[in-house]
Design a binder for these strands. Structure first.
Length: 111
DNA sequence: ATCTTGACCTAAT
DNA sequence: CATTAGGCCAAGA
């Protein structure tokens, strides 16, 4: 497994409860601003890590693009709503209010 | 070995 | 406004 994947998991684990972030934000934080797809791919490969709060990662529009990868089509939404986030039509309401940006919330990765 | 398919994003048209 | 094009690179066929 590549180091990049591990870094993605490390960031995802730091997402506070009740907050969400996006694939691109994680990619940017890891220094690969154009590798957002790889973050998504890393999540796809993260099924062997049940403790990972994968439901707190959505796309940049607040859309639950990965809900089909959870067991049960409503599970991702239920997990988010159980943390106080409102979801309607696979879309997070007031997304910007819940958005958690690792680039500002975490110390920037030092050189 | 090649080809296709993605839990994506940005910039340009 | 909407649409396209390009970049990213790991797996599965």
């Amino acid at each position: 497994m590549s180091v990049f994947f591990e870094q993605v998991y490390a960031v995802v684990q730091k997402i506070p409860l009740g907050r969400v972030t996006s694939y691109g934000a994680i990619a940017r934080y890891l220094g690969h601003p154009q590798s957002a797809r790889m973050v998504g791919y890393a999540m796809n490969a993260s099924h062997h890590r049940p403790e990972l709060p994968a439901h707190r990662v959505v796309n940049r529009n607040g859309l639950l693009s990965g809900k089909h990868h959870f067991t049960g089509s409503k599970l991702m939404q239920q997990l988010l709503e159980s943390e106080g986030i409102t979801v309607k039509n696979d879309q997070i309401i007031d997304f910007k209010d819940f958005f958690w940006d690792p680039n500002t919330a975490l110390p920037r990765m030092e050189i």
